[in-house]
Lab assay of single mutants.
Amino acid sequence: MAAGGDHGSPDSYRSPLASRYASPEMCFVFSDRYKFRTWRQLWLWLAEAEQTLGLPITDEQIQEMKSNLENIDFKMAAEEEKRLRHDVMAHVHTFGHCCPKAAGIIHLGATSCYVGDNTDLIILRNALDLLLPKLARVISRLADFAKERASLPTLGFTHFQPAQLTTVGKRCCLWIQDLCMDLQNLKRVRDDLRFRGVKGTTGTQASFLQLFEGDDHKVEQLDKMVTEKAGFKRAFIITGQTYTRKVDIEVLSVLASLGASVHKICTDIRLLANLKEMEEPFEKQQIGSSAMPYKRNPMRSERCCSLARHLMTLVMDPLQTASVQWFERTLDDSANRRICLAEAFLTADTILNTLQNISEGLVVYPKVIERRIRQELPFMATENIIMAMVKAGGSRQDCHEKIRVLSQQAASVVKQEGGDNDLIERIQVDAYFSPIHSQLDHLLDPSSFTGRASQQVQRFLEEEVYPLLKPYESVMKVKAELCL
């Protein structure tokens, strides 16, 4: 049975990233139509530049190519590739079939990587351009969430054990800070992308030097003109047959890092959902379990974690691919890159769409948070109580021993009897502590235990987050809708 299948058929496997999760716009960027249309555009740009620099290419040939950029006979191309065992030459023939007058000058002087690699770089750039505003929107939604809850005390956790208090907004800023680093890295790697350009079979530009009869300047002009037509500021000066596969490492490393950030955020949300302090959106008709109707599973956060793990592992592909590119190139890269580049971007696209949807509907339960604080705060307040007693004339050592005994009794009630923490009640009825009984409410005010959390939130948002989001103001209103 021949390899390949009808990918629109229910009898043929289709990647869930495309069929179930990723956005239509990201799927289109990695589609065959987008790819092969870009090949034709690159052939047109090459012909236009070659004509401008004096090669015998007519206006009629150029116009014929322009008129057929979208006229792609995919069936013919597939048949040609089956016959020739070469995808680029299959599309040269297919393009030439609908451009008979231009057929002889299509791909003039070029090698397969002229269309293959340059198209990949265009796709990487455009895919990054799709991700950047999506990530900015996630940051914006979380920034709104953090600002609104900047002063809401909550129990902090280290080692997932109760620690000092923080605020809900401050905790959210930990998430935002990681995503801001990801946004900066995505922008950097996007701006650092260079075009492969017009380089020939081993990167020496020998074929173009021959076409222009040894004119170095025209060869350099050709490279520059096509690079500018493709919208790049610069091209690699040095290439082998391909652009260095280190570029793929750079791009997928940034995406993998984004995956790590999203995994951490969504894990926190899942843990908070278990504590009943916070939940992701839950639709009115949504079913959490087929057997347990009360369940409210954090399905979206779980999906993000599941896909983020996949995204983090994909960076190993370009690392290994770059390491086995012998001399000017081997074909070890080809099949692998067809999979890992598309999957990385479709996965990143999915987790950003999902995280935006989550961040637009996060639900906080202040009463649950308050109750958990009441359970733990008495123990945390013991040092403040000791200091207040010393100020009232008591002995630190005597007070410490009193607190120690009462704390152990209260802990026994919590752990052995399943009761509430009654340390404060014990202190309130103990005559030894009568000098500070009137101060206990103040000493137990949760806001006095959150330090500068709310001020940190305000400063972080104003100095770091809002300036970073400013270039994306025009796209901030787009909502994230999930079908599944």
Score class of each variant (00 low, 15 high):
319 L>M: 09
424 I>S: 13
306 S>M: 00
407 S>R: 00
180 C>F: 04
385 I>Q: 02
12 S>P: 07
194 R>I: 05
239 T>W: 03
275 L>R: 09
260 A>C: 07
253 S>V: 11
107 H>A: 00
454 S>E: 13
465 V>W: 04
147 K>T: 12
443 L>W: 03
399 C>L: 06
223 D>W: 00
60 E>F: 09
353 N>K: 13
188 R>I: 06
53 L>N: 07
254 V>D: 09
353 N>V: 09
54 G>Q: 09
141 R>M: 15
404 R>Y: 11
239 T>A: 15
263 H>V: 06
349 D>F: 05
289 S>Y: 02
183 L>K: 06
368 V>N: 04
38 T>K: 07
109 G>L: 01
329 R>H: 07
43 W>G: 00
351 I>S: 06
367 K>A: 15
218 K>F: 09
335 A>L: 03
200 G>M: 01
47 A>W: 02
115 V>C: 09
37 R>N: 06
118 N>R: 00
457 V>I: 13
39 W>I: 08
241 Q>C: 02
269 I>V: 12
142 L>P: 01
446 P>N: 04
379 F>G: 02
425 E>K: 11
366 P>Q: 09
113 C>Y: 00
136 A>R: 14
50 E>D: 02
360 E>D: 14
458 Q>L: 13
467 P>V: 14
112 S>K: 03
353 N>T: 08
196 R>W: 02
62 I>W: 06
2 A>I: 11
333 D>M: 01
366 P>I: 04
60 E>P: 10
220 E>V: 11
199 K>T: 06
297 N>S: 01
225 M>Q: 12
443 L>M: 10
328 E>A: 05
142 L>S: 06
439 Q>M: 14
334 S>H: 07
298 P>D: 02
310 H>W: 07
154 T>Y: 04
473 E>V: 13
91 H>P: 02
221 Q>D: 14
363 V>Y: 07
134 K>I: 08
334 S>P: 01
28 F>N: 08
458 Q>I: 08
66 K>P: 06
235 A>T: 14
333 D>Y: 03
376 E>S: 02
262 V>T: 14
152 L>M: 12
350 T>N: 15
424 I>T: 13
62 I>S: 04
268 D>N: 13
95 F>W: 13
105 I>S: 14
167 T>W: 02
330 T>Y: 05
213 E>I: 14
428 Q>G: 12
238 I>A: 10
141 R>L: 14
467 P>A: 11
335 A>V: 08
169 G>D: 02
337 R>Q: 03
108 L>F: 12
421 N>V: 11
195 F>V: 06
207 S>F: 06
273 A>M: 14
300 R>L: 15
51 Q>V: 06
103 A>Q: 13
10 P>F: 15
309 R>L: 04
195 F>W: 07
